[in-house]
Every structure is written in structure tokens, then in C-alpha cells.
Design a protein around this nucleic acid. Structure first.
Lengths: 192, 192
DNA sequence: CCTACCGATCGGTAGG
DNA sequence: CCTACCGATCGGTAGG
């Protein structure tokens, strides 16, 4: 019973994530979600507390996933080049494995209410600062090019963060190929 | 009178763009917009036909601005390196000069109804294809590195497209410096 | 540009 | 998990 309820809840959140991604959080109604799940709108509230708790679950889950991969990047004794490669690869893997959730966390987080909004923003800042540290240390070590740290941070992060927006499985690009190509482009540049 | 009405209309659209950027299109009410403009909600309809026509104006205006800069890039006889540099620079300049409009066009276009939705998507495709052509030709000429065209297109475009998300004037980074650094990073790579 | 107002839809609850 | 329903809010109109 407990297990069955949990999986039903997970199913609701999963379907909600797809709808939030397609139409946006505000434009998705609980009635529409209920229909896709296969129940009446009122019945949803036996599984979830409110529309916003769905959004909270999605955003926090992804925040934790990215922070966990950042930690993984910093754990071992990698060179700076290995570190940055691993960071980019893991970021892309988390993204591809959770496209709907990532899309919602990236675009709909602003509809969180406090304290969840602040909590999410802090997680993101922590992630960005972790990446920034790698960039700054690699630069100090003479491995990375001399580029304004904030600009490098957001340019690289944007390049990989928005894989979620354009990546389609039907493009016949494997995840590994995707990672290889993006790493090559960002680390060595477009010009030969 | 005509002129005064036009400027009032422009003011409404400008304030709407800021609200749409901050809260999202769906989460912004006409009553809230009216309050910021300094009139009653019903009075807005003397200047604009509907909430959606505001969104249409914003999206189409930015679509045209980007396509116009693409045309400018292709007009003269630039080398591929000059061409790609100019493309990146002009993209950033259009973005910085219209941050609120660009933000709305980037994030809220999906709330357009047909035929405007299709029109906008076509403009974006045209822009992406124009950029893709530069990348493919530069690659064929041996100037650009051998990278999967679609991946290069979207990785580079994402890197510059989302300047709008993170750029703050208070970071004390001038537009020229921003362009220089992004061009350096994307064309030559992070690794020295 | 305002007052007054409408039909539709929203998230959510009561009670079973 | 459903039926029945609520108060709030929405975009927009009529009429001046």
C-alpha cells in the first residue's frame, strides 16, 4: 500500500514535469494534470499537498543531483584538465538523464515561494561557485587561458546548461559523442 | 495625439516586458501591468488589443533584430574568422541593448498562439540555419575545428544566447570587454 | 481613461 | 478516489 502510493505519487510528479516543461508551470492546470494521470483533479490531493509541492520536489531533486556531481568532481586527485572534462561530462549526463526535471528546474524555479525559492537559489549559487573555483585554480596553475572568471563561468555553464533545450534523442547523437564534441569545442575552441 | 498615443503604447509594452521577464507571461496580470503603468486595467485596452498582442510585439521585434544582424554578418566579404567574431559580437550587442525583450522572447515565446507561434519558430530556425551555414563553410574551408555541426551550433548559440540571463550591469563588465572575453573563450578554448 | 461588470477558470476543500 | 462546490482571480467588454 505504502509502496503503491509512493509510485503513484512519483508518476504524478513525472507527468507534471512533462507538462510544466511543455506549457510552463503557471499555464498547467491541476485539471489537465489529473486528466493525464487518469483521475479527477480533487483526487490528486490524496497524493500531493499542492501544485507547488510538485515544483519544489522537482527543483530540489535536481539541485541535489547537480551538487552531488560537483562533489564527485572534487573528490579525487584529478588534474585541472581532467577535472573540467569530468565536470562537463557529468553535468551533461545528469541533464540528459532527467531532461524534463532539468527543464522545469531551469525555467520554472522562479515560481517557488519562500523559503524554497531562497533554498534553490542558494543551491545554484553553491554549484556555480564550485565550478568557479575549478576555473580560477586552473587559471592560476597556468592550465586555463586568462579569461574573466565570471564570464568564463557563465559562458561555459550556459553552453552546457542548455543542452536540455535543444537535445533530441531523434538526432541520433549518442550521449558520449555529445560529451566528446562539447568538451572538444569548449576546451580547445572553434578555430583550429 | 497620434504620437502621444504611440509613446504611451510603447511605454506599456516596455513595462510589460519587464514584468514578463521577472514573473513570467502567465503569472503577470493585466491589473498588475495597469498599476505599474498608472491606469486602470480596462484602460490598457485603449492602447493594446490584448495581453497576447504585447507578447507578439516583443517576440517579433526581437526575431527581426537578430535576423537583421545575421544579414549584416553575411553582407561583406569577411574571412570566416572575422565572420564568426562579428556574429558573436553583434548577437551580444543586440542582447545587451534589449535585455528585457530578449528575455521574454527567449522564455515566453511558447505562449504565442498560431499563427504567431509558427512565425516566431520559423524566424528562429532561419537564424539558427544562418549561423549553421557559417559554421559548416568555415569547417569545410579548414578554418574551424571538425565538430558535429548541430552540436557546435547549439553549444555556441547557448553560450551567447543566455548572456541575457546572467549579465548584470553592476558587474562592472563593459560590453566590449564581455565580447572580447567570450570571443576569446569560444574561438580558442579554455585550455591554453 | 474610468466604473461596473461578465463568464471562465483556477487551486483547493468537505464529505463521503 | 469521486461528487459537489467555494472564493479568488483572470482577461476582457459595455458604456460613458
Amino acid at each position: 500500500m505504502e509502496l503503491a502510493n509512493k509510485s503513484r505519487k512519483d508518476e504524478i510528479i513525472k507527468i507534471a514535469a512533462q507538462l510544466f516543461k511543455e506549457k510552463g508551470y503557471k499555464a498547467t492546470s491541476m485539471r489537465e494534470l489529473a486528466e493525464k494521470v487518469g483521475m479527477e483533479a480533487a483526487s490528486l490531493y490524496n497524493h500531493i499537498a499542492s501544485k507547488e509541492t510538485i515544483l519544489q520536489t522537482i527543483c530540489m531533486q535536481m539541485g541535489e543531483a547537480y551538487l552531488s556531481h560537483l562533489q564527485q568532481t572534487n573528490e579525487n586527485n584529478y588534474t585541472f584538465e581532467e577535472k573540467i572534462k569530468l565536470f562537463i561530462r557529468l553535468h551533461i549526463e545528469v541533464t540528459i538523464a532527467n531532461i524534463a526535471f532539468v527543464s522545469v528546474a531551469n525555467h520554472e524555479w522562479k515560481h517557488l515561494s519562500e523559503p524554497h525559492l531562497n533554498e534553490f537559489v542558494e543551491m545554484r549559487k553553491k554549484y556555480e561557485n564550485g565550478f568557479l573555483r575549478i576555473l580560477e585554480e586552473g587559471k592560476k596553475a597556468g592550465i586555463f587561458r586568462d579569461i574573466h572568471p565570471t564570464i568564463a563561468l557563465f559562458t561555459l555553464l550556459s553552453a552546457i546548461r542548455w543542452v536540455e533545450v535543444w537535445y533530441r534523442e531523434d538526432r541520433k547523437i549518442s550521449v558520449v559523442e555529445l560529451e566528446d564534441e562539447i568538451v572538444k569545442l569548449l576546451l580547445h575552441g572553434l578555430i583550429r
